Simulated scan of single mutants.
Amino acid sequence: MRGLYLHNGPLFSQQANVIQVLHMCDALTSLGLDMTLAAPDDGMKSSSDAQDLALREIGRDSSVDYIPFKRLTVAGYLSNLGCRWGAKTLLTKGIDFDFCITRNLLVVDLLLRRNIPTILEFHHEQTHSVGWLDQCYRWKFLPWLRSENLVKVVTISEALAQVWIEAGVPVGKIQVLHDGVASEDYETVEERAFARNRLGFPEDGHLVVYAGSLYPDREVESVFKLARAYPNAHFLVIGGPKERRLELECEQISLNLDNVTFKGRVPHQNVREYLFAADVILMLWGASVPTIRICSPLKVFESMAAGRVIVGHGFPTIREVLTDGQDALLATPGDYQDLERKLGLALGMSYPNPMAERARTLALEKYTWDRRARMLMDAQTMKKIEAINTSS
């Protein structure tokens, strides 16, 4: 069965959505589906370019075909609408697919008009950050979600499902599938001493690792306060962008903190090496993160699979996956003292650690990309796709 994954963002970007798309295409291919990835050609021109990206970021090339298309923008804006033009051009070429998966509401009608069985994934609660544009897009495109040719609507959290149900998406169309982790990358937990030796860190002493974006809304500055509170622990920060990392390094120097190291961004497939080296994995977000009400961060599941104690902010969507005191130590969002206290508890724990093992078991049993792909393309879904194709 031939499937099209119609993405609306450039693949050369280092954002988490690209990692998610690469992993899902790989997992769908492992089910025996013949997948093609179509995305704007902003710097990525051929299948070999896409394969190189997959090898660099997720460590594998699933031989997914890649089709670039043009994306129009207005001074860099209206990119989703510009993807609609590019997708329309692509679809008029008459390329034959048995189904399509897309994250862009603005192209769904193009697919449904051609009787292509379509799965829409929502990862955001708005179609555009500008309110009146969001309302216009909803008015024009949401009615298409009642089409018989729309197989289902997938959301990445229960909270996001509720947002779109309230917006009028039929409840029976919705399936909730959190993001996941590549189980093969975490099949074996590397010993901390071995991981640290390979990365050039001392085997002794506590190592606290944060791996994620450094944007101001992540409140990474909390690391400085934690480093002062726990001077015998070393704090390793992985992530970018580079400009933000340099700002934080300057702040670190001004604070005279020698137990914090900023590594910068590393290829996604290498993040696990640093997680394995940790005693504690730190997960930070601020209330101003635009998607914090509805998100399903990749780092949650990778941190769980690494088999290390997790300390993080317990926003509601994080608590859809993790339970405080059972498989993680979750602090009240916005309460630094609670975060500091939870980290103190974590630093007092030893390994083997039941809490870390529970988190790891949960990740590998319930939140893998392979399992997500199987649930996405379950028997009922395959039957519906075949029925639509037979009747069209």
Rank of each mutant, 00 (worst) to 15 (best):
Q135N: 11
N115I: 10
F301W: 05
Y66V: 11
D134E: 03
L207K: 04
R60W: 07
M349Q: 13
T323S: 14
L362A: 10
R358F: 14
V108T: 05
L145R: 11
S47C: 12
P202M: 06
N17C: 03
Y77Q: 12
R71V: 05
E247V: 09
P290G: 07
G325L: 02
V21G: 02
D378F: 15
V271H: 07
Q175D: 02
I388A: 02
S46A: 01
V266D: 04
I19M: 09
D370W: 04
E166N: 11
D61T: 14
Y367H: 06
V181C: 01
E187R: 03
C25S: 04
L246G: 01
S48T: 12
K384Y: 10
D258H: 08
V154Q: 02
I67P: 01
S47M: 11
R319S: 05
C136Y: 08
R113L: 14
T127R: 02
Y336F: 13
E357W: 09
V163Q: 01
E249R: 05
R360M: 13
E203C: 04
R113Q: 14
L120H: 10
M375E: 15
L145G: 08
A39I: 02
A16V: 07
H206I: 09
D41M: 03
L112I: 08
Y274P: 04
K140C: 14
Q14W: 15
A363N: 04
